[in-house]
């Protein structure tokens, strides 16, 4: 016993080393499994503020480009609205019916604008920090979209900042479908190029062509149906040979993301509680 104590006292730096490493690993594993550890991430108050300051400075350099893209997008949407309005007018005899339909399409969703203050795309497990948190009404598992397409899902929230699990994280999995033929699979990213992700579990008998648009399916309560994801770029057989694996070129350019929208369904709680009651 005495020898043991002597040994421990002599090599106490080794004990400290083991202790510190154990703390590190606890932090690492807790962050990956338990969603409450917001304190040690960039969503805590001090780190969030510093990130906000730095991205505020960096944002100015890209304003011209952002403006140009916004204008282009605006014109595009303007034309689309015009075309849709004409189409709707053609179908409905009564214009109030058409207006009622249009209004109802957006009634079911709340949208919160937010800014990206911290972002990473080069690691395997990427995360993104937004400048809105639980005080602004953001809750975990809300969807995040940008002007071009889907971005990710809220992972955890601090009072004024929140962390997004973007598509560019192997933990993220988003239900999506081919817009033309309605066959659905789920979207996964497995490291590598941040412009490409994969749609898995596409059935063997599904019909698609290279260049088809992939949109969210609306099967989960997180995203509404029809938010653009990307275009089919390439296809291969899955590893087990039972389904297709589609390579998708993402519409969202994660490397230059600044403004996003957090979107949530008004009836989400009702829907998830209903789905939870079903025993699997």
């Amino acid at each position: 016993m005495r020898n043991l104590l002597d040994f421990l006292l002599k090599y106490n730096y080794f004990l400290l080393f083991v202790l510190l490493e154990v703390i590190c690993f606890i932090l690492l594993f807790r962050f990956n499994s338990y969603q409450g550890s917001v304190f040690f991430t960039s969503a805590n108050a001090v780190a969030g503020k510093v990130c906000e300051l730095s991205s505020g400075i960096a944002r100015y350099w890209g304003l011209e480009e952002v403006n140009r893209r916004l204008t282009a997008r605006n014109v595009e949407l303007e034309l689309e609205v015009e075309a849709l309005r004409r189409a709707v007018d053609g179908y409905a005899q009564d214009s109030t019916v058409a207006r009622h339909l249009l209004d109802r399409a957006y009634d079911n969703y709340h949208v919160y604008p937010a800014r990206v203050v911290n972002n990473s795309i080069a690691r395997l497990n990427n995360y993104m920090t937004l400048d809105k948190g639980s005080d602004d009404g953001i809750r975990p598992e809300m969807g995040v979209v940008c002007g071009n397409g889907v971005v990710g899902i809220i992972y955890m929230t601090g009072p004024h900042h929140s962390i997004v699990l973007p598509v560019l994280n192997p933990k993220s999995s988003i239900s999506c479908k081919i817009r033309r033929t309605e066959y659905f699979g789920f979207l996964k990213w497995e490291g590598g190029n941040p412009q490409y992700a994969y749609v898995k579990d596409m059935p063997r008998h599904s019909e698609f062509m290279l260049g088809d648009t992939i949109v969210t399916s609306g099967h989960s309560a997180v995203f509404p149906e029809g938010i653009p994801v990307g275009t089919v770029d390439d296809m291969v057989d899955s590893h087990d040979g039972l389904s297709y694996l589609l390579r998708v070129k993402l519409f969202t350019d994660f490397a230059r993301l600044t403004d996003v929208m957090v979107i949530t369904s008004v009836r989400k709680e009702e829907r998830t509680s209903l789905e939870d009651r079903v025993e699997f």
Binding site: E21, I26, L27, L28, S37, F40, S42, V50, N125, Y127
Partner: peptide, 12 residues
């Protein structure tokens, strides 16, 4: 770590 959302990794 705190800034790059990798709690424990750089510290270890």
């Amino acid at each position: 770590d705190v800034f790059s959302n990798t709690p424990g990794m750089n510290a270890a």
